[in-house]
């Protein structure tokens, strides 16, 4: 399997936060999710990948041949969309189309119009134009997404693209990710961050879990779902089960948690209910473990 992005030992120090020793290989042709709580370092990492923020140490290799010094080539190959305001607020769809057309070699105005139509934003060449500042958060994000998806890129890097979208728009976004990947079978890659993975479950191939500026787990989703199990049980066996659980919550009736699949037999012997976790359940289990580990320190 080819690697779209090879990140080695990337470090960035801030006064009150350190993104430390990040090693990740992003597989080419797939969609990778950065999953973590607020403040885990997802945005910092995305900004470093896109060259918006400079890293203090470490190296990055893009598509097997470029480094972070080849920004002029990478600029046209990477479609970046931040969660912060990406365009000035007094722009409208028409202005966005004009500027994107000048700024990038691969911006397709026709495709931008089609995407605006799909997102029900209006016509970028129409007479009546609404300024971004007059739009809802969701429509603003739709505008950013239409602008970035109208470019013929090899890598999409999106910071929290779903968080301000309503359920139907999230579903549409997932379709667009799959369209993007299928259009150039195996040659395109998506990286996106989210703190609510449930809506993106069926568009996530590879997951990277972050907490406290570090990567705490990573892998292909189908592999992770086989590595871990979801365990439910009656409160009476909670004490016996806990040593096998990586993280758990309990009350006077029952408990739940995640464990390694290799401990399934021992847990089953305690008359617990064992299931394959969804990505959402897995995320909660892994992030809770990070939080519990942190509190113990």
């Amino acid at each position: 399997m080819d690697t779209a992005l090879n990140i080695k030992d990337i470090t960035k120090k801030y006064k009150d936060f350190t993104l430390g020793g990040i090693d990740i290989e992003i597989p080419m042709g797939f969609s990778s999710a950065l999953i973590g709580a607020n403040g885990a370092g997802k945005t910092t990492l995305i900004d470093i990948i896109c060259g918006v923020t400079a890293n203090d140490a470490g190296t990055m290799e893009y598509f097997g041949k470029y480094t972070d010094n080849d920004r002029s080539e990478l600029r046209n190959m990477i479609g970046y969309c931040s969660s912060a305001n990406y365009f000035p607020m007094d722009w409208n769809l028409k202005k966005v189309a004009e500027v994107m057309d000048v700024a990038f070699d691969n911006f397709d105005r026709k495709k931008f119009s089609e995407l605006c139509d799909k997102f029900k934003l209006g016509d970028p060449s129409g007479k009546k134009q609404k300024k971004l500042m007059k739009m809802s958060d969701g429509n603003r994000m739709r505008t950013y997404l239409a602008a970035v998806l109208a470019r013929d890129t090899s890598l999409l890097v999106l910071d929290e693209p779903a968080s301000s979208l309503d359920p139907l728009a999230r579903d549409l976004l997932c379709d667009m990710f799959r369209d993007y990947l299928a259009e150039k079978d195996g040659e395109r890659t998506v990286i996106f961050s989210t703190h609510n993975i449930a809506d993106m479950e069926f568009v996530t191939d590879h997951a990277i879990f972050m907490a406290g500026g570090k990567v705490i787990e990573k892998g292909f989703v189908e592999d992770l779902k086989e590595k871990y199990i979801l365990v439910h049980g009656d409160a009476s066996v909670s004490e016996k089960a806990v040593p096998y659980l990586l993280s758990s919550t309990s009350n006077k009736t029952s408990f739940e948690g995640i464990a390694l699949a290799e401990d399934a037999e021992k847990l089953a012997a305690l008359d617990t209910a064992i299931e394959q976790p969804t990505l959402q359940q897995l995320s909660i289990g892994i992030l809770r473990k990070a939080e519990q580990d942190y509190e113990e320190k």
Binding site: D175, R178, L181, D185, F202
Partner: peptide, 11 residues
């Protein structure tokens, strides 16, 4: 990727 697209699931 086509099948994933049609079935609305991950690649």
């Amino acid at each position: 990727r086509m099948l994933a697209q049609d079935l609305k699931i991950s690649v």
